[in-house]
Amino acid sequence: MRGLPVAAALIVVALCAVPLVVHDEYFLHLFIVSGVFVIAVLGLDLIVGYVGQLSLAHAAFFAMGAYTSALLFVRLKWSMWAGLPAAALLVGLIALVLGSVILRTRGHRFIIITVVFAELMKLVATNWVDMTRGFMGLPGLAVPPLWIPGIGTIDITAKSHFYYVVLFAAIVAFLLCRALVRSSVGHKFVLVRENEPLAESLGISAFRYSMIAFVVGAALAAAAGSLYAHYVGFVSPDLFNFSYVTIMLIMVILGGKGTLVGPALGAVIFTFLPELLREASHWRMIVFATILIVATLFMPKGIIFPLITHLVPRNWRLRNARAA
């Protein structure tokens, strides 16, 4: 048990050291993108992994967060520091409204409606040209300076600086999700997933707990989208493409759904892998799709999380098993 905080601290130290060790800006870029995906994918794990609802609208929440933040920046000159919470809040609210309609349905209808919703949002981003500039997208988004009390204002546009912003956000998101799933709310998530009739008979509303996961997940996705928009400096309707939700699902499923650590690592690995496989880009998606099918069929616990639990000391494994 004592090993856990030490290991966690060491991992954080190692992650903090990344810009000091990795001078290749291209790899730093990939680390930053990974961090953004970690935040989004943690949110997806709450919905898919903990309450067991397959939402295909998650990439749309990510894109909507990116757009909200970008529009606030372009139209109202709000910096990212205001845009990010605003995006999380607004998209969380949209998820609340959407959820109040679709979380009452269960099963296949839910899944299909989430895709339909995502496509509809893409059409809005494409066709509401006066607001979103349609396919032209919104360029020129900037990273604001960061003001830290006692230190003053620092420029964080450099990758080695922005990395720490994303790292901090990812750690906060992780701790938030961990606190949530370890709370009584989190236990009810799992109960809803494992046995909905039983949960209902105990007075636990599947609707309410699915809703909590859905809204928090959407807000996280939106926050990630906001970071991404300002980092890349540009948003366009392509962010709504189905391929984003697929890759996020691959991160969660192969990472090991319902474990938080697994999906987070999945996000890092499946950001780097496609880039390292650039040469074989035609085969890349075929390989991923095959892995997704095989893993879903034969390795329901995913690949990455079981691998870690196998590698780390036993006492940690026990604790995690209990947490999950």
């Binding site: 290991a7 060491l10 991992i11 190692a14 050291a17 990795v22 870690i308 590698l311 780390v312």
Partner: peptide, 11 residues
Amino acid sequence: MRTLKLVLAVA
């Protein structure tokens, strides 16, 4: 520790 080594090695 092993995880840490792994992370460092990768980095």
